Amino acid sequence: MKLASWALGVGNKYHNKYQRLNKKVPAILKLKYKIADKLVLSKLREVFGGNIKFMPCGGAPLGPDLVSFFHSFALNIKCGYGLTETTATVTLFGDHYFEFNSAGKPINGSEIKIGANDEILVKGPGVMKRYYKKPEATAEVFDEDGWFKTGDAGKIDSYGNLVITDRIKDLMKTSGGKYIAPQKLETALISDSFIEQIAVIGDQQKYVTALAVPSFDNIKKYADEHKISFKNIEDLINNNQIKTMFEKRFEELQKEFSKFEKIKKFTLLPKEFSIEAGEITATLKLKRKVIQKKYKALIDKMYAE
């Protein structure tokens, strides 16, 4: 375990502190990396097939810590951004100066800028001309200068990388007038090994709540280690020790968020959101309206208590 931690630390410094920023790698670090790679890092790459030049990621964001982890053992994750209307890719990680919390820089021919309400606007040869036989819908998504309005919110960092902040249509407004970006919260929370899926609730409500699907394997293991008896998953997710454990994890995972953004109450669910149940899309995005309708009783209970 110590060897693996040392090797990943060396890999992190080599790839993420030097190569990513196009800096000259010190000779001693090169030597350490050669040893770390032979003993540990190359074996981690073998798990993913070995000689992989790069691995694209899209559809849903990877947490920056996870992207950094992959890069520390030279698994070249290329995070990007795009939509069906832009023929997929608009931005992508380059070889240098990308940030792990970003979606990279515009690819050749594509242009991006940030419009009203922080909306990401796109121009380029990959952008569609129109929706088929839907002139009104087409007019809604193009501004007067021909920029395509993506419906996503973002910003451009000092290196020119696009940072996605949220889906504009998904922004929630509490009854107190505060705006909540649910995807930002959800991305932070599902980085935890005990949380498999999570749906943040809060639109027109007095505080933020969530429906959380635990990692069933991990909570079973936790229960065994802490001698918590249970007959089934329902029994386990309703156990007070398990609930307390999740409360502590939620508190730690949300420490960087403002008080009004934080999840005040949550409910653990006994089964995952699924495509078959109509709760998520084929690209694994939450169907919030479906989830809110289906779990209305549980949601109402969190606001009634």
Rank of each mutant, 00 (worst) to 15 (best):
Y14C: 03
H15S: 09
Q19Y: 06
Q19N: 10
L21I: 11
P26H: 04
K34V: 07
D37Y: 12
E46F: 09
K53D: 15
M55F: 15
P56F: 07
G63Q: 10
P64R: 06
S68T: 14
F73P: 00
C79A: 10
T84D: 06
D95N: 15
N108D: 11
S110R: 08
I112C: 01
E119G: 00
I120R: 00
K129T: 14
A137F: 05
F142Q: 12
D143M: 10
D143Q: 06
D145P: 04
N161R: 05
L162E: 02
I164G: 01
I164S: 01
T165Y: 02
M172H: 05
S175C: 03
G177T: 06
Q183E: 15
Q183V: 09
T187F: 03
L189R: 02
S191W: 06
A199P: 05
G202I: 02
Q205V: 00
Y207G: 06
V208S: 07
P214M: 08
F216K: 09
N238K: 14
Q241I: 08
I242Q: 02
K243C: 08
T244F: 10
M245P: 01
E252T: 11
Q254E: 14
S258I: 00
K259N: 12
K265S: 11
F266V: 00
F266P: 02
L268R: 00
P270L: 04
I275H: 08
L284D: 11
R288W: 05
K293I: 04
K296S: 12
L298I: 14
L298F: 02
M302A: 09
